[in-house]
Amino acid sequence: MPKTKTAPQNTAVAYLRVSTEEQAESGAGIAAQRAAIEAEAARRGWVIVGWHTDAGASGKSMTKRPALADALEAVEGGEAATLVVAKLDRLSRSLVDFAALMERARGNGWNLVALDLGIDLSTPAGEFLASVMASAAQWERRIIGQRTREGLAAKKAAGVRLGRPASLPTEVRSRIVKAHREGANYSAIARSLNADRVPTAQGGKQWYPATVKAVVNSQEAESVGQ
Rank of each mutant, 00 (worst) to 15 (best):
E127Y: 13
E103R: 12
A99E: 01
F98V: 07
L101S: 03
A99Q: 04
E103N: 11
A105I: 00
V96D: 06
R106G: 04
G109Q: 02
D116Y: 04
F98T: 08
W110P: 09
L95C: 08
R106Y: 13
A130F: 02
L115W: 01
L101N: 01
F98S: 06
V113A: 12
W110A: 05
M102S: 11
W110T: 13
W110M: 05
L112S: 01
A114N: 06
L101Q: 10
R104P: 10
L121S: 15
D120L: 12
R106H: 12
G109A: 02
D97S: 10
L115A: 04
L129C: 10
L121C: 08
T123N: 04
R104K: 11
S94Q: 02
T123K: 00
D120V: 04
A99W: 00
G109Y: 00
D97F: 11
E127W: 09
L129F: 15
A125C: 10
P124N: 13
W110Y: 09
G118H: 02
T123H: 00
A105K: 07
A114Y: 00
L95P: 09
A105R: 07
F128P: 06
L101Y: 04
P124Q: 08
R93V: 03
G118W: 00
N111K: 09
P124D: 04
A105E: 11
N108D: 13
G118L: 02
F98I: 15
L115F: 02
A125G: 15
W110H: 06
V96W: 03
N111F: 00
A105W: 12
P124W: 00
N111R: 13
T123E: 07
S122H: 04
L129E: 08
L117A: 14
V113C: 11
L95M: 15
R106F: 04
D97H: 08
A125R: 11
L112R: 01
G107E: 09
A105C: 07
